Structure formats: structure tokens, C-alpha cells
Amino acid sequence: MELGVLVPLAPFIMVVCIVVIPMWLKSRDRREMQATVRAAIEKGQALPPELIEAMTKEVKPAKVSSALRDMRTGVILIAVGAGLAVLGFMLGQIADEALHPVMGAAAIPALIGVAYVILSFFNPNKGHQPDA
């Protein structure tokens, strides 16, 4: 098969890999855990309630939005925008037509970061909540 065929298929292959591989790894871990539990039951060992509870939980609890989390996210996005702006400035030194498109692209994460910083002041969950 030619490499020219793989180039247009690469984004689709990437999406499949991003979705399928984590699902496969999770199912493999779950199978191993079930085999361990099955072996423990066959040997007559009692299962702790914490283990049963951990096996029945499917998803992680939702992270509660807090002012600190919003502020961190905003600062990171502003830094990403600033980094892209510096890249645009450096590319503008080489080719003048590169400055404006890259600066426009840098404005997107930077302005989203500014919005997060502003929202952090209005977040009702002002406390410093630990990440779970």
C-alpha cells in the first residue's frame, strides 16, 4: 500500500486509537480484577466491602468547579496564548505574512483564559477544594 493513502486516513486512525486503546486497556484491567476476585472467592476469602464498592463504581466523581480551579485554567490558557504570540512575533521576523494569522490563533486561548480568570471572581465556590 502506498503512503499517499495513509495520509488522508491518518486523522481517522488517530481518532480510533484515542478512543479504542483506552477502552481496551480499561476492559483488560477490569478482567484482571475480576479474575483476582474470582480466585479469592474460590479460596473462600471474604471480600471487603470497599473492594465491591470500588468495582461497582464506573465513573470518577465530577470535579467541583472552584475559583482556584478557574484561575489556574485561565492563567494556563493565557500563557498558551502568550507563547503563541511570541511564536507569531518570531515568525513575523522571518516572513511578514506569518505574524497576523498566528496572532489571531494566539488570541483564542488567551481570551478564553481571560474569561476563566473573570469567572473565577464570580464563582460561588470560593474555597480551596482539594482535587479528587
Rank of each mutant, 00 (worst) to 15 (best):
L3C: 07
V5M: 06
V5S: 09
V5N: 13
L6S: 08
V7M: 04
P8W: 13
P8I: 15
A10L: 12
A10V: 06
P11W: 15
P11E: 05
M14K: 00
C17Y: 06
C17S: 12
I18K: 00
I18Y: 02
V19A: 01
V20D: 05
I21P: 00
I21M: 03
I21H: 01
P22E: 10
M23G: 01
W24Y: 04
L25H: 11
S27M: 14
R28N: 12
R30Q: 10
R30K: 14
R31V: 14
E32N: 13
E32F: 04
Q34F: 15
A35Y: 07
V37F: 09
V37C: 08
R38T: 15
R38Q: 13
A39Y: 07
A39C: 08
E42H: 07
Q45H: 10
A46N: 09
L47I: 15
P48A: 11
P48N: 14
P49C: 06
P49A: 10
E50D: 03
L51E: 01
L51Q: 02
A54V: 06
M55T: 02
M55W: 00
T56C: 06
K57C: 03
V59F: 09
K60S: 09
A62T: 10
V64Y: 08
S65G: 04
S65Q: 03
S66M: 06
A67R: 03
A67H: 08
A67P: 02
L68K: 15
R69S: 07
D70G: 13
D70V: 11
D70E: 15
R72Y: 07
T73Q: 01
G74D: 01
V75Y: 00
I76R: 03
I76H: 04
I78P: 02
I78F: 12
A79D: 10
A82F: 08
G83H: 06
A85F: 14
L87H: 07
G88A: 11
G88F: 02
F89T: 05
M90K: 04
Q93V: 11
A95I: 10
A95E: 14
D96A: 06
E97A: 11
P101C: 09
G104C: 04
G104A: 11
A105C: 10
A107H: 05
I108E: 04
A110H: 01
A110I: 12
L111W: 12
V114Y: 07
V114R: 00
A115W: 10
Y116V: 13
Y116D: 09
S120W: 09
N123C: 14
N125D: 07
G127H: 02
H128A: 11
P130K: 08
A132G: 05
A132R: 10
